[in-house]
Amino acid sequence: MLGKLMRKKPIVQEVTMSDQIALLKSRKIPAHVAIIMDGNGRWAKQRNLPRVAGHHEGMKTVRKITRTASDLGIKVLTLYAFSTENWKRPKVEIDFLMKLPGEFLSTYLPELIEQNVKVEMIGNFSMLPDHTKDAIRKAMEATADNNGMTLNFAMNYGSRRELVESVQKIASLVAKGQLAIEDIDELEIESHLMTAHLPEPDLLIRTSGEVRLSNFMLWQLAYAELSFTDVLWPDFDELCMFEAIKDFQSRIRRFGSVEGEKEA
């Protein structure tokens, strides 16, 4: 009796995170990625949890995506953490949100330092509670000499307010005779924005299915590629980030011209 023919199981090559990162890095990586982290409240509601539970879970996602962005070689990661409009939310939620920077930075600051990440912030710093300011200031001072990725938190930030302040600064220079009206151009306006020292975002990601900018970096995003996903921020993981980068690399960026090149 013939024995049964034994078939060898095919060898399945598991694609690791490192493999995927290496593949993405073999093509053009966006220098600056901005993210509107949306959906924390809905994530909590789906689980019958208080909204603050969603914000706390979202904080863990910040850690994952920061590490992933750094590994990918992204130069700047700007996270929309708290807008000027968010002050309209219930006080208990605002108080919790103002405590998150302290908790996040106290927990993960050693890791950020190890990864050579530099912490910065854009927004109205003066209006934040003292404990929030202290946490952010401490992280900025501790990472000031790092020269890896910049983790830029947009806290108490509103783009329209930023533009108003830029115009006010320019008007003051004109009034003092230090700047001629005919010398006001795009570069002059940009030089007075909070992001003057940073490259403009190449890619904007917004989670949770909302498709709007919500007063975020209106000037800076003029030619950014926009990526919208239904995934809620607490569920946004490394694979979601990889997909957004892959999509970015497949697009042709023309910047208003007829010809363009893929980001590959």
Rank of each mutant, 00 (worst) to 15 (best):
I245G: 07
E120P: 01
N40P: 04
L23T: 14
D38Y: 02
E162C: 00
H32A: 00
V12R: 12
L221W: 07
G256I: 08
M121R: 08
I189T: 00
E225F: 05
T61E: 08
S227N: 13
E165P: 04
S191A: 11
N86D: 13
M127V: 11
V76R: 07
R47K: 13
I74P: 05
S83D: 09
I136H: 13
R253P: 01
I74C: 10
K45W: 09
G102Q: 10
H56M: 14
R47T: 11
P201I: 07
L151T: 05
A144I: 15
F236V: 08
R63L: 01
R212Q: 12
I136W: 07
G148E: 10
R254N: 02
P110Q: 04
L204M: 13
F153A: 02
F96G: 11
N48R: 12
L24N: 06
E261T: 15
V117G: 04
M241Q: 12
S106G: 14
L109D: 13
V174M: 11
G209Q: 10
L193Q: 06
G256N: 10
L128G: 14
L24W: 06
P129T: 13
L5I: 14
S191L: 00
L198V: 02
E85Q: 09
K25L: 12
D247S: 15
A196Y: 06
Q115F: 01
K138Q: 15
V174F: 06
H197P: 01
A22R: 14
L24R: 00
H131E: 11
